[in-house]
């Protein structure tokens, strides 16, 4: 049964291989639903009855103190972590809980990790080449040739992330901030419908942060973007809609100002003011 299922799913993936035509059904509004999701590690509930909806084209920031379950939530959406209960839907057609990581990725969900992970032994150019939406089965990959079209696409993204001059450098020698951008660039190469970005500005300088903010706000509208961030200043600078997580469930939702004045949030998030000040 599950074998048949995997067959049918593989078939479904094939028509998404054409990058532009994402089959995600957003006619009913939201692009991502999480409903009553619970995850526990050894009895500890990292996510507790979490409900979350992201609209198509939205830029959403998710904040919350340490251990609020932000990273675990990303893991659930991308198929890395399996919840104990609940349901996760991408558009109104795809049940993410029945898919594995590559399937979810080819569906158009891209994730940037908390710790920047780029392929250090490959060049910047090659990193983007691998990320590009393409037929990712074995033989097409083996026989893949470099065409002008692909090169143009990579050049375009290189410009966007400002790494055009470093295209032939090994990714391993990039600075921390450059790695973050390269990773965002890799996400862009996938032409995702939904971008999950985990702490994009950790360890960045002031200027780098500004550039990143521009980059992300520029993406919203074309793509849906979910940003998990600790840095309140950064969140304030990009966010339209903010969700506060606490102990694995949603504590408050609204604009930054609404959320910041919510007494519940102030109570659990006392550190917020300090961080903003810093």
């Amino acid at each position: 049964m599950s074998f048949l299922q995997s067959l049918s799913q593989r078939d479904r993936v094939f028509d998404f291989m054409a990058p532009q035509a994402s089959p995600v059904d957003v006619r009913h509004g939201p692009i991502l639903y999480l409903e009553d999701v619970t995850v526990s590690f050894d009895g500890f509930k990292a996510i507790n009855n979490l409900n979350l909806t992201i609209d198509d084209g939205e830029l959403r920031c998710i904040i919350g103190p340490n251990g609020a379950g932000k990273t675990t939530m990303m893991g659930i959406i991308t198929g890395k972590t399996r919840p104990n209960s609940g349901s996760v839907w991408f558009g109104s057609r795809h049940n993410l809980l029945q898919m594995n990581e590559p399937e979810i990725a080819s569906l158009g969900i891209g994730r940037k990790f908390q710790k920047p992970t780029v392929f250090e032994a490959l060049s910047v150019f090659e990193n983007l080449e691998l990320a590009m939406a393409a037929d990712k089965r074995i033989f097409p990959t083996l026989t893949a040739r470099m065409t002008g079209e692909i090169k143009d696409r990579i050049d375009e993204v290189l410009e966007t992330i400002g790494l055009a001059a470093l295209r032939h450098q090994l990714a391993g020698i990039l600075s921390h901030g450059q790695k973050q951008w390269l990773e965002i660039g890799m996400l862009l190469m996938q032409r995702p419908r939904l971008l999950l970005v985990d702490e994009p500005v950790a360890g960045m300088t002031e200027q780098e942060m500004e550039r990143t903010a521009e980059l992300l706000t520029g993406l919203a509208g074309k793509q849906s973007v979910v940003v998990v961030e600790h840095d309140m200043g950064f969140v304030r600078s990009i966010a339209r809609q903010v969700t506060v997580l606490h102990q694995g469930s949603v504590l408050a939702e609204g604009t930054m100002d609404q959320v910041a004045s919510d007494p519940k949030v102030v109570e659990v998030y006392l550190g917020a003011d300090d961080e903003e000040a810093a």
């Binding site: 990790f113 780029v118 032994a121 490959l122 691998l130 990959t141």
Partner: peptide, 23 residues
């Protein structure tokens, strides 16, 4: 080939490669 680069990517960051959509 590109497959070789996917291999190197797998060697250095297996999870990342998976998230790029490679099986």
């Amino acid at each position: 080939s590109k497959l070789g680069r996917v291999s190197i990517a797998t060697r250095d960051a297996e999870a990342r490669t998976r998230f790029l959509g490679y099986r």
